[in-house]
Nucleic acid binder design. Sequence first.
DNA 1: CGCACATATGTGTATTGACATATATGTGCG
DNA 2: CGCACATATATGTCAATACACATATGTGCG
Lengths: 176, 176
Amino acid sequence: MSLRHAILGLLSIQPMSGYELKKVIDESVGHFWTADQSQVYRTLSTLVDDGLASRRTVVQEDRPNLHLHSATDRGLAELDTWLASPLQTPPIREPFLARLFFADRLPADRIQKLVDTRRQEVAEQLAALEAIAVPANATEAGQVLRSATLANGIAHARAELDWLASTQRQLERITP
Amino acid sequence: MSLRHAILGLLSIQPMSGYELKKVIDESVGHFWTADQSQVYRTLSTLVDDGLASRRTVVQEDRPNLHLHSATDRGLAELDTWLASPLQTPPIREPFLARLFFADRLPADRIQKLVDTRRQEVAEQLAALEAIAVPANATEAGQVLRSATLANGIAHARAELDWLASTQRQLERITP
DNA sequence: CGCACATATGTGTATTGACATATATGTGCG
DNA sequence: CGCACATATATGTCAATACACATATGTGCG
């Protein structure tokens, strides 16, 4: 469970409610990490139970009360331990490649369509990533790192598009 | 659960035992799909229960008996349905990027080390992928598709290496 | 007025999967 | 002789997650 650490990391930057966390995850780290809303709340609870985060209720009058969460000292220590620990590579699962691998069961035009649909999807993803503004000449480590994670997504999207184009050409070559 | 379909796909090419399937998954589709051994056996059982695969026991004298599995007609139909169904994009989870995002908590040399360790790992992965031989001028759709999935892994590994180099340069720029 | 949507927090539950473990036998190595 | 390793199948179990659902209130729109 690395969602624990992702949340701990976000809380180390700024105290947040579960609701806000979910939004931040979707918006600012969404290109490399996703989380279910219910999981965010449950993880926050275990974090508080384990003493890695603290919870403070903020009374609001015109909307439901907030549970504002902060990383505790132990939480920050745990975060640093995680940052220094060896990286466990996650299981690779690429549904599109899995499909493409068996796609010769389909007629040629259907294979082409598979590839083309994928091309459109990746093109949209790329456009979405490129639309996110990044500071041009970052001087702080945090800025550099955060724009680098974004650049990673862009680099892979472009690589995927190039590969798709090349695959498409190869497919056209065998079915003239 | 797409392991069902991955297994169904492999069985459509050739009847196999669970043991053999696990090996084939590790070796031939390992660069885009991984599976736990216990999960392979359990999935085979549900596949048989659902009538999508059939099981035949092959008695062997000097080793444990084989359970040879084949895709049934219904299994092949299910496979084709899956191939034609809209692709559900899996949740994105990139532990390395998650770490890098919060790595400004670490001293500069530790960040560099993080990036460098990653560079070595990806370089090894790339070498492993490049070592797999592929037919140069594929004429069959199946060959083209299968070498394309391999090419995909290579393309992404190279993109990752380029990005890592660029990130490293940026980090050096801010900590002279 | 009803409806959707944003704010905000949670529970219930089934599936998936990772990891450990059990069982049985043959081969090769030191 | 013991040990590791390959062949081969399978269960037990816990954690992580996805998806659905429940609850409560204010705002804006047609």
